[in-house]
Amino acid sequence: MATTIALIALVALNAYVLLAGADFGGGVWDFFATGPRRTEQRALIADAIGPIWEANHVWLILVVVLLFTCFPAAFSGLAIALHIPLTLMLVGIVLRGSAFAFRSYGSTADAPQRRWGRVFAIASVLTPLVLGVCIGAIASGRVGDMLERLDRGAAEASFVSLYVSPWCSPFTIAVGAMALALFAFLAATYLTVEADEAALREDFRRRALWAAAAVFVTAFLALILARSHAPRVSAGLIASVWALPLHVLTGAAAVVAIAALWARHWHLARVAAAAQVSLILWGWAAAQAPYLVPPAFTVANSAAPPRTLELFLWALGVGALLLFPSIAYLFWLFKSAGRNGSAAQESD
């Protein structure tokens, strides 16, 4: 049962990465909006994420709530060790969300629009970076090590060695950069589908291809650094039985995504990009299974009592019955082909 719930947590994280990740990526492209069509680029991004970003954001809350209900020990451990990056991530989340809302529903005058656009864009760059750093820190095993030291009573250990070095290393920063590149790649690929103007579509096609190159470089860096900084994940990624098929699949998805972008098969590119990002996430999870926070907490040893898990599954089932049709309705309303009017103007 605990394993089932851990898999559900991974699915929710996957949904967050694919949906909210792309919203953050949109902010990255707002930041890098250049050329003669920069206003149109920004308008397209705002239209694309306006109706859905808050619903997408809730996937993160679901992951958090799921962790603290079903794996309370692991959750509190993560909160202790990653206090600083998580707080920074929260600042990013707060600024991104409120700046976007201020820009969309506040004054339509030029200066505040630009100012909030700036805040929105910078926060959209910061947040994925820190999220990646946190995931890298967990994967590296240093978070778990730090918690074990704390349990043994590390009174003499310095603040930096306990609360900074577990998440601040070349490896975690490489993973952060990779997360940023992935989100930007997703967003640009999605936006090629959403743009209804050929020139705009070309803008985002070029951006998607550049982001794909950035993904390649950062992923390569992370992989190299993993050998020395995250040996457990590194071993999982290289040695285990499922490693080869997973790598082949991830690589295939990446190749298909890039080829489809190249050949301007927008819908195929979107599916392949989403598959590629998901496979990377599942690869990480598989490499550190059965650990939630290696080496301190496994899925089994940090799970809540069975009664809680059982009830949680029931609640999740009922919640899914109510929510999935609602989410489908939201996306059908604003994302299906031919319905892509400019939604933002209607809210005025």
């Binding site: 109706p51 859905i52 808050e54 619903a55 954001h57 809730v58 809350i61 679901l62 709530v65 799921l66 603290f68 209900t69 079903c70 794996f71 309370p72 020990a73 959750f75 509190s76 809540a304 009592p305 809680t308 009830l311 949680f312 609640a315 999740l316 919640g319 109510l322 929510l323 609602s326 989410i327 309705y329 939201l330 604003f334």
Partner: peptide, 26 residues
């Protein structure tokens, strides 16, 4: 760590309610 397993339930249900609110507000 102490209370997560005991009162995570209402927080989870709140998560669903909040999800519904965000969807239909959109």
């Amino acid at each position: 760590r102490f209370a997560g397993a005991i009162i995570g339930m209402p927080f989870s249900l709140e998560g669903f309610a909040f999800f519904a609110e965000a969807i239909f507000l959109g």
